[in-house]
């Protein structure tokens, strides 16, 4: 897929909770096609401690509105700069990057999407595409507490959503891997979230013989497979998360 370097203009900034914002952006010309699970590298301007672009997963994408959404967790100087942007501001962006999730070929597939906290961001666009394709899917989202879950109405508008919270403030109390929905029969799992959660999901998938794709995250520089900084140690040696991933089948990983 052809990658572009484009100045995106912020249409809307929505503060979702204390540490998370949704940035909806557009471009003067039509945005390139984007696959669920791909990401972008956003340039951070005017912040002396930040030189490198920040890799951010694509949360939503609408060719009709020519709009792309990024869900940004405010963790450091770079993401805080993004969080302070206002409508009309511009962000130089490199996209689309990475491989994306593999969509099922079987229309009767029963799919499970497991997200943890802000890590569930790319699953929203995946769910949008699955809904558009008429697939049967369940979203299972886990968080520490109900207040850490964002855009619940938007997720619920796409289909069936189940929740777990560690403090029991929403859905079933505990971790995603303890949820009773896992007693159902699924044919494919997609997951993104904190690594311990993804490891547990991968274990469940192996034990139940269900194919599973995970979206990894690590420190990146170029985003283009050139610098070889963002490697994951796979069964076939070091692979770049930015170009060989960020989505990997668990069969490729040493998990």
């Amino acid at each position: 897929m052809k990658k572009v370097l484009v100045d995106l203009t912020i249409r809307e900034v929505e503060q979702l909770n204390a540490t998370c914002v949704l940035l909806l952006m557009t471009a003067e010309s039509p945005l390139p096609a984007v696959l669920p699970g791909q990401f972008a590298e956003l340039r951070i301007d005017g912040t002396p401690t930040v030189m490198l672009r920040r890799p951010i997963s694509i949360h939503s994408f609408s060719p009709e509105k020519n709009e792309i959404g990024f869900l940004v967790q405010l963790v450091g100087d770079g993401t805080r700069w993004l969080g302070n942007l206002k409508a009309g501001d511009k962000v130089n962006t490199l996209l689309p990057l990475g491989n994306g999730f593999t969509l099922p070929t079987d229309k009767n597939a029963n799919l499970l999407l497991v997200g943890g906290g802000v890590g569930s961001a790319p699953l929203y666009y995946l769910a949008e595409e699955l809904k558009r394709g008429g697939y049967n899917f369940t979203l299972l989202i886990g968080a520490r507490s109900a207040k850490d879950l964002y855009r619940r109405d938007a997720y619920e508008a796409l289909g069936r959503v189940e929740y777990t919270t560690e403090d029991g403030t929403l859905g079933q109390k505990g971790y995603v891997t303890n949820h009773t929905v896992l007693g159902e029969k699924f044919t494919q799992i997609y997951t993104c979230g904190p690594k311990p959660m993804m490891l547990s999901v991968a274990k469940y998938a192996r034990e139940n013989n269900v194919p599973c794709e995970v979206s990894l995250e690590n420190k990146m520089a170029c985003g283009l497979g050139a610098c070889l900084c963002c490697v994951e140690d796979t069964k076939e040696g070091h692979k770049c998360v930015c170009t060989d991933g960020p989505v990997f089948s668990i069969d490729e990983l040493k998990w």
Binding site: P48, M51, A221, V231, G237
Partner: peptide, 15 residues
Amino acid sequence: EGNPYPRSAETPMGM
């Protein structure tokens, strides 16, 4: 195979 991850760290105006 190169070195294990992590292989990069951002520093002020450098890496």
